[in-house]
Each structure stands twice: as structure tokens, then as C-alpha cells.
Simulated assay, not measured.
Amino acid sequence: MGVISTVFLILITILFPPLGVWAVAGCGADFLINICLTVLGYLPGHVHAFYIIYVYYERKEAAMAGAIPTRDAPGIYSHRVNTGGVRGYGTLQQQSGPGQV
């Protein structure tokens, strides 16, 4: 299933780059930047879109292997892309001080 969705995402990105970015990063700064780059020229929109998709899948594979990236990728503003789609659930607990339960 993962290979089919990746191929489908690449085909969508070839036809219309902002749609591929929206599928991976959602509606945010990366999506708006890609729309602007696509309007300015079709090639810059493609380069930006494929860079975002590459970083997303690279970080997703690293997260599945247990290596969580510590820094954001340069030029990418989406938290979803920078973490590879892995969501944190706030596992850190607040320590209670004296008199707190």
C-alpha cells in the first residue's frame, strides 16, 4: 500500500505540484510557497514539491527505524514533514513539588 500511494503522490506532483505538497504538508506555509513558486515558473514549483516529499519520506523511514531527527530540514516549515508524520503525545510529565499532588 505504501508504494502505490507514493507513486500516486508522485504522479499528482508531476501534474500539479501544489496538490502534492498539500497532500504531504497540509495547508500551511509550504503549500503557499509552492503555489507562489508554481505561478512564477513551473520548474521551481516542481523542485520545491519534490524536496518536501523527499524530506517527508526520508524522515518517515528514519522515525520507523527509531531515529528521530533533532533539527528541522532547511526551508521546510511544516511540522508534519519535519517529523515524518509522527505525532508526539506529550509523554513528559510535569513534576510535582512540595504540597502538590
Rank of each mutant, 00 (worst) to 15 (best):
A65E: 14
M1E: 13
H48F: 15
R87Q: 13
P74N: 07
V86F: 15
G84K: 05
L92A: 14
L9K: 12
Q93W: 02
E61I: 04
P69V: 09
I76C: 08
L11T: 08
I12A: 11
Y42E: 00
R80A: 12
S78G: 06
A65W: 00
G85L: 04
Y51C: 04
Q95G: 08
I4F: 11
I12N: 02
I35R: 04
A29N: 10
T38R: 02
I12P: 01
V47M: 09
F50S: 07
Q95A: 13
L9V: 03
A23E: 08
T91A: 11
K60Y: 01
G66N: 07
T91K: 10
F50D: 06
V7Y: 07
S96C: 02
I14L: 15
I68E: 11
Q100W: 13
T13Y: 07
A63I: 01
A62I: 03
F16C: 12
V21F: 05
G28T: 04
I4P: 02
G99I: 01
D72Y: 08
A65T: 03
Q100S: 14
N82H: 09
A65Q: 14
G90D: 05
Y57S: 03
G85I: 05
N34V: 07
I68W: 10
G45D: 04
T70H: 09
M64E: 15
V86T: 11
I12Q: 11
C36G: 12
T38I: 05
G99C: 01
P74I: 07
I53T: 03
A65I: 00
P18E: 07
N82C: 10
I53W: 04
V81R: 01
N34K: 03
E58D: 14
I33L: 13
I35E: 05
F31H: 02
G28F: 00
R80T: 14
L43W: 10
V21R: 02
G66A: 06
Q95I: 10
L43K: 00
P74Y: 08
L32C: 11
V47E: 03
F50Y: 15
F16L: 15
H79Q: 13
S5Q: 14
C36Q: 05
Q95L: 13
H48S: 12
L92V: 12
P18V: 07
G45N: 05
T70C: 06
L32T: 12
A73F: 11
S5Y: 10
Y51W: 10
R71N: 14
I35G: 05
G41T: 06
Q94C: 00
V101K: 11
G2P: 01
I53N: 03
R59Y: 01
G20R: 03
